[in-house]
């Protein structure tokens, strides 16, 4: 396994991490101030974001250059694979927290709240029956839940299709068909972008027509939290795909050596799988 570790690539000192930390310091303090309605927050947030973008470009640019100049041997490549796998695992756990919240509310806390109307001396939630979808016993606004078979079903199809195109582009790369690679990559990005567009439309629809908001109790909270974070991940994935697209235009990646590409593909499939969970547990059930 470690025959080549004498040549394991250890990068030279780099200022990008500290730049990234500065960005996060500005962004987090900026966000905290903004949430508490202190004006300078926005400015800080914007500066932090700008620095973050600069850092990401610089850092990933460096990694891409290192990769193309052949600094990464097999062992380094394997490291990237382990690293990316466990990173995706942490993302899965992050979503688990929100899915957990959804299951807990639907199966435990809401039935408990409904039961409570029969407890002696209960002064709250007197006529709450707790059937899902619900905004909870104390939120009295009416709303319409999001149906599964309209736009969401279409979105499911989009993402599944994009999973297919993503695999096609990978095969093309492995068989060194550069045109196929670019074509299918573009298709994947397009499907991803379309998905995000539909999702945005769905949100507008929810707010304007269904009276379904983040403030709509249990249903609204879980709906927007889960779909929102998923949408955010799709956006990140689509940006990564775009980067990969430009890198393949620049002639990066070889049939043997293309972990940059594969990592993004894994990420895209992960986003896909999470959506399936979402479609079943948020929209269908």
């Amino acid at each position: 396994m470690s025959q080549e570790s004498g040549h394991y690539y250890v990068p030279a000192p780099s200022a990008y991490p500290i730049i990234g930390s500065t960005a996060l310091l500005c962004m987090t303090s900026g966000a905290a101030l903004t949430f508490n309605k202190i004006e300078i927050g926005y400015g800080l947030l914007a500066i932090g974001f700008a620095i973050l973008i600069y850092m990401l470009f610089g850092w990933f640019g460096t990694v891409a250059r290192e990769s193309e100049s052949g600094k990464f041997n097999q062992q380094v490549d394997l490291s990237f694979r382990w690293g990316m796998s466990w990173f995706i695992f942490t993302e899965v756990m992050f979503f688990c927290a929100f899915f957990g919240a959804l299951f807990y509310m639907r199966n435990l806390s809401i039935p408990w709240l409904a039961e409570e109307s029969s407890v002696l001396g209960n002064s709250f939630w007197s006529s709450y029956d707790g059937t899902w979808p619900t905004a909870g016993p104390g939120v009295h606004e009416q709303f319409t839940p999001m149906g599964a078979w309209g736009l969401p079903a279409f979105n499911t199809m989009l993402l599944l299709l994009s999973g297919v195109t993503c695999t096609l582009e990978h095969h093309a790369l492995k068989e060194n068909r550069r045109d196929g690679l670019k074509k299918w990559l573009l298709a994947t990005i397009f499907l991803g972008a379309l998905f995000i567009g539909c999702q945005a439309y769905e949100y507008i629809h929810a707010y304007n027509d269904l009276n379904l908001k983040m403030t709509t109790g249990a249903y609204g909270s879980t709906f927007f939290m889960l779909t929102g974070f998923h949408g955010f991940h799709v956006t990140v994935g689509a940006i990564m795909l775009t980067v990969i697209y430009f890198r393949s235009l620049a002639g990066h990646f070889t049939p043997e050596h293309h972990f940059g590409f594969e990592g993004v593909a894994w990420y895209w499939h992960f986003v896909d799988v999470v959506w399936l969970g979402l479609f079943i547990f948020v929209y269908l059930m």
Binding site: S109, W125, P137, G217, S221
Partner: peptide
């Protein structure tokens, strides 16, 4: 800050969650 009800009984959430 955004009015969700994860930990608020009135919205069907639960502090114990």
């Amino acid at each position: 800050h955004f009015g969700t009800s994860f930990f608020n009984a009135a919205g069907g959430g639960d502090p114990v969650m």
